[in-house]
Simulated assay, not measured.
Amino acid sequence: MVKDIQLVANDLKLYFRGFEVALNKSNIDDSIRYLKDIRRELNDNLDYLQAKQEASEVQDVLKRILKESLGDYKKRIRRIEKELKRH
């Protein structure tokens, strides 16, 4: 996820640099185009990164549930083993 964020940041830096150059040259059309590119880049990548973050959070919850379930099964197995030793 960190690499994805770094890629987005690099793209935004490039667009912002283009925006600055266009402003310094008083090129309004290019300035507006770069601002639109920045907005598009932000919108597209925010959706992508949020989906990736949500998937990561779901995966963490599933891991926790699996660990808890494994713990329960281990306890059950120990109880069954004790009962089998008694018989």
Rank of each mutant, 00 (worst) to 15 (best):
N10H: 08
I77Q: 14
V8C: 02
L42M: 07
I77T: 12
L12S: 03
D29Y: 09
L12N: 03
D30M: 09
V8K: 05
L66G: 08
M1P: 11
L49A: 07
Q59D: 13
K82V: 07
V8W: 10
F19D: 01
I65S: 14
K67I: 00
D44H: 11
L42N: 05
E54H: 06
S31C: 00
R39V: 04
Q50Y: 09
D72I: 03
I28Q: 11
A22G: 05
L23K: 05
Y73H: 13
Y15T: 00
S26L: 00
S31L: 02
E83K: 14
G18R: 06
Q59N: 15
K74E: 08
K75E: 13
S31H: 12
I28F: 10
K82P: 01
L12M: 06
D29G: 02
D44L: 04
D44T: 08
R39Y: 12
I32M: 08
F16I: 02
D4H: 06
V8D: 08
R79N: 07
A22P: 12
G18W: 04
L70I: 03
N43F: 06
Y73T: 05
Y34A: 00
D47T: 12
K52C: 02
D60K: 13
L70C: 10
K63N: 14
Q6R: 14
D11K: 06
L70G: 06
D44G: 03
D72P: 02
S31K: 14
L12V: 01
D30T: 04
N10Q: 11
D47S: 07
I65Y: 13
M1I: 05
L14W: 04
L7D: 15
D30Y: 07
A55C: 01
E68W: 08
D11M: 01
L14C: 00
Y15H: 05
D4K: 04
Q6V: 01
E68D: 14
Y73I: 11
L49S: 10
K13P: 00
R76W: 13
K63F: 09
I5M: 11
N24R: 09
F16Y: 11
K74Y: 13
D4S: 09
L66R: 14
N24I: 00
V8L: 04
V61P: 04
K36N: 05
L35F: 08
Q53R: 09
R40E: 04
K36T: 07
N45F: 05
D37G: 05
D47C: 01
S26I: 03
R64V: 03
L62F: 09
I80H: 15
